[in-house]
């Protein structure tokens, strides 16, 4: 099949960008979307042009590196699928596709379709962990965890940090991402000791990174390649509210320590 691509080209963060048109010819339906772009890039190089920069690594849908908008949808048309796992059989001959980077103030464009997502790392650094010094752990079976809690924690922990949720949200909110980590750790007995501190610190960091607020639209859940449920946002809000009300002074002291 043959496709027409309109791709956002931007030389660097400080340069202005624009859409450019490319023809993708003889595309096999068995190609992945990124393999189709590889072929387009090989031709651009042969023609002495600058290839399109896009982020990718594992190409198995688990590392979270890849992602851009295809016709306005984060990761493209197939539900539960990252761009690297999206195959060209999801498109048809003559399709016209618009490829744009994630758009959010907290995710500045670095080049073409590649953005800076380090804000996510800083949100995790603010509290998205359980403190367990190496070597200090009790036996793995010392604390039974109900299977249901463990399964729900795993559902939330499946987040790959790709940023599609932010890109899809009209407010560019990071609630699904932060809620997923707060839920994963908050659902486990090991995560209780730091549960309130975690919610307060992570939410504060989300704000500091200038992500927008959540207004329960649900676009994030719709595009999430790992089907992280909206319920994680409700859990985050509950933990945050509870922590804000309860013993605020003690938590503040802990934060300043």
């Amino acid at each position: 099949m043959n496709l027409t691509l309109h791709v956002w080209r931007q030389a660097k963060a400080s340069a202005p960008g624009r859409m450019e048109r490319y023809e993708a010819k003889d595309v096999s339906p068995d190609m992945s979307f990124l393999e189709m772009l590889d072929v387009v890039n090989e031709k651009l190089i042969a023609d002495g042009k600058t290839p399109i920069t896009f982020e990718h690594d594992c190409r198995e849908g688990i590392c979270g590196s890849c992602g851009f908008m295809i016709n306005g949808v984060a990761h493209g048309p197939k539900s539960g699928t990252t761009v690297c796992q999206l195959h060209m059989r999801s498109f048809k001959d003559g399709d016209e596709l618009y490829l744009e980077p994630w758009r959010a103030k907290a995710f500045p464009v670095l080049k073409d379709l590649m953005v800076d997502r380090n804000a996510f790392d800083r949100i995790i650094a603010a509290g998205g962990y359980i403190t367990a010094r190496t070597g200090s752990a009790p036996d793995g079976n010392a604390i039974p965890v109900p299977k249901a809690s463990s399964d729900q924690a795993m559902d939330a922990a499946a987040c790959i940090g790709c940023g599609a949720c932010v890109a899809a949200c009209p407010n560019a909110s990071a609630a699904l991402f932060s809620g997923a980590k707060i839920s994963h750790l908050g659902l486990l007995p090991q995560g209780q000791a730091e549960r309130e501190r975690r919610a307060l610190r992570m939410v504060a960091q989300v704000k500091a990174e200038q992500f927008g607020n959540c207004t329960n639209i649900g676009e994030c859940e719709a595009v999430c390649p790992k089907h992280i449920p909206l319920a994680v946002i409700a859990r985050m809000n509950r933990d945050y509210l509870k922590a804000s009300w309860k013993d605020r002074g003690a938590v503040k002291q802990d934060e300043s320590a």
Partner: peptide
């Protein structure tokens, strides 16, 4: 020790119904 360490960090390993 690795399993102990990872469980303490909150790695959601598969569990039996009894929680182990």
């Amino acid at each position: 020790s690795i399993i102990d360490q990872c469980v303490a960090q909150g790695v959601p390993f598969a569990r039996e119904y009894g929680g182990l």
